[in-house]
Amino acid sequence: MIKLIKLFKASNEIYIDILKALENEYIKFNFKDNIYLNTQKYFFENFKKNFFSLLMISILIESKIDKKRIIAYGKIIFCLRAIVTATDNIIDNENKGVVHILNIPEITSKNIFNTMLHQQIINLELESLKVSSSIFSKILEDIFFIAKSEGLRDLKLYDSYPTFKYIEKNIHEGIGGKLLELSLIIPILIEKNSKLNSYSKGLFEIGMALQALDDLTDIDEDSLNCKINLATAYISESKTTENYLKNTLERALQGFKIFENLSYPIDRTSALYILKKLFKIRGINKKYLNIFKTF
């Protein structure tokens, strides 16, 4: 656990450098005063609110990638996250995220501009890395798959409620597994590092598990908004919430086991500790946290 904490602290230091690099990108625009970067720079706050950003950086560190390139990849990861969040905001009529565009009051326009801004930064960063145009296409293909999966969540598309297996395959592989894998797509294509490919497989499992967890906490909200929900399908098939959580936890542990096999400083005990924290952050009812006692 001590090695893991040290690794995340080192990741936090690089994360701060990434934020500074992004701020330098923003000041190049005449509308820089209208860009508000709402971030925390303290380790414990970032561990709680930006865990996956630190996790991605830690993977790059463990893959022995040069710090300068980690910062470049970190900027891209941050921008991809901003684009996905802005898209979700348009769908859900919300204004979440760490980057806010000021003086554009209408939500759709604000988030479209946010997407365009961060796509431009990604393009410039890829140009500075001197990569081939095929990488631009690969990013777009993956984002299309995620968007397509998100579009299938509309209950009005179906005559009857889809099965658990259908939702997991056709929806969650995009909005869960692929969404988390997306952060490593650029380093994988550029670095040709076999460890990154294996880490990506672990991220897929973790992403699938945490999206399943999100569905459990969003059952009522998704029902109200007529959206397909994995937990609803599972429970309706005469299965229990406890088994749903157990399966979700097991899948996440499989992902972290892949990390452990790559000599990442994590074991089952520390993985369970992190997952319990993530369960709490995502608002899982306290009574369900007893599931950890069975592992």
Score class of each variant (00 low, 15 high):
190 I>M: 06
185 I>K: 08
175 I>C: 06
158 Y>R: 02
165 K>T: 12
180 L>E: 02
167 I>E: 09
190 I>C: 06
195 K>G: 00
173 E>L: 01
166 Y>S: 09
203 L>C: 15
184 L>V: 08
196 L>A: 13
185 I>D: 07
193 N>H: 04
170 N>E: 14
160 S>A: 10
192 K>G: 12
167 I>D: 12
183 S>D: 07
190 I>P: 00
189 L>K: 15
186 I>D: 11
173 E>G: 01
179 L>W: 06
182 L>F: 15
189 L>P: 00
198 S>V: 09
187 P>W: 05
167 I>W: 04
181 E>F: 11
185 I>V: 08
167 I>A: 11
168 E>D: 02
184 L>G: 03
171 I>K: 09
187 P>H: 07
197 N>E: 15
158 Y>N: 04
175 I>F: 08
160 S>W: 13
175 I>D: 10
168 E>N: 10
158 Y>G: 00
182 L>C: 11
192 K>Q: 12
166 Y>G: 01
180 L>K: 08
204 F>G: 07
203 L>E: 11
190 I>N: 06
202 G>N: 13
186 I>W: 03
158 Y>V: 00
170 N>S: 07
175 I>R: 11
165 K>E: 15
160 S>F: 14
186 I>K: 07
159 D>T: 02
167 I>Q: 06
160 S>T: 13
168 E>F: 09
199 Y>C: 10
171 I>Y: 06
203 L>S: 12
189 L>I: 03
198 S>C: 05
185 I>F: 02
161 Y>M: 01
168 E>K: 13
181 E>M: 15
204 F>R: 15
177 G>M: 08
186 I>T: 10
186 I>C: 10
201 K>L: 14
159 D>A: 06
196 L>W: 12
171 I>W: 01
156 K>Y: 14
157 L>S: 03
163 T>R: 13
164 F>M: 01
190 I>E: 08
183 S>K: 03
166 Y>I: 01
179 L>H: 03
193 N>K: 06
168 E>P: 00
